[in-house]
Simulated assay, not measured.
Amino acid sequence: MFVSRIARRIASPKKALASAAVAAATAGMVLTAAPAHAATADSAASAQAIAHKMIPSAAQYNAFSKIVEHESGWNVTATNSSSGAYGLVQALPGSKMATAGADWKTNPKTQIKWGLDYMNSRYGSPTAAWAFWQANGWY
């Protein structure tokens, strides 16, 4: 990738990344950050299985899954180093998820419940939240 080649050639990768982001923005491109920590295959599969049980509609599950994949890579402890957003659905602040359960920091079921409630209350459904995400790059 373009950014990686610049980062390897320049002594300060952060400056290179910032320059690449400015260049991309000028060109009308959007750079998205990867989750801070990749989820293990087992933990991601476990969280996905929980979500499947909680979201019986295939269309709603698929939309929810796409958002979570983009936001956290299905990593229950993903933390955005810039904003502090946390968890599968990148709640900001993460402590908002305490309304769904005291175990919000580590329990995918609690985070999924909170995320579903958020998507339903703010957008009407996960599919509507995904449509918003596609249009804006965030939800």
Rank of each mutant, 00 (worst) to 15 (best):
A39K: 04
I67A: 02
I50L: 15
G84T: 10
K113G: 10
D103A: 07
L116Y: 10
A63W: 11
A45E: 15
P56R: 01
T99C: 00
D117G: 15
G73D: 08
A85G: 14
S82T: 15
N107I: 10
M97R: 01
S43T: 15
V76N: 04
S65P: 02
T79H: 00
S83A: 05
G73T: 09
S82H: 14
A47L: 06
H52K: 15
A38N: 04
I67R: 06
S72V: 06
E69M: 07
V68W: 03
K113V: 09
K96S: 07
T106H: 13
P108C: 10
W104Q: 08
V89E: 13
S82M: 13
S83F: 05
A58M: 15
K66M: 12
I112N: 08
P108F: 05
A102R: 11
I112E: 06
E71Y: 10
A91W: 07
A39H: 12
G87L: 13
L92K: 02
T40E: 12
F64C: 12
A98P: 12
P56K: 14
F64H: 03
S81W: 15
I55Y: 14
A58V: 12
A41P: 11
A85C: 09
W74L: 02
N107P: 06
A49G: 15
W114L: 02
I50K: 08
Y86A: 00
W74G: 01
A38D: 03
A59W: 07
Q48V: 08
A44Y: 07
V89H: 13
T77N: 13
A41Y: 07
H70E: 02
L92V: 04
T99R: 08
W74E: 10
Q90G: 11
K96L: 00
S95Q: 01
Q60T: 02
G101S: 10
G87D: 09
T106V: 07
G87S: 09
K113C: 08
V89Q: 03
G101Y: 03
S43V: 08
P56G: 02
G84H: 09
K105D: 04
S95A: 11
D103L: 06
P108D: 14
Y61G: 05
M54N: 04
P56S: 15
V76L: 13
T79S: 05
A98L: 01
P93A: 08
M97S: 01
T99K: 11
S83P: 09
H37E: 10
A41W: 00
H52S: 00
A63E: 08
S81C: 05
E69C: 02
Y86W: 14
I55T: 00
F64R: 00
T106S: 02
K105L: 05
G101D: 00
H37K: 09
A41H: 12
A49K: 03
V68S: 04
A51I: 10
L116C: 11
A41R: 13
Y86Q: 09
G94S: 06
Y86H: 05
A47C: 13
Q48M: 09
I50V: 15
A100Y: 06
W74Q: 12
K109H: 13
D42G: 04
Q90M: 07
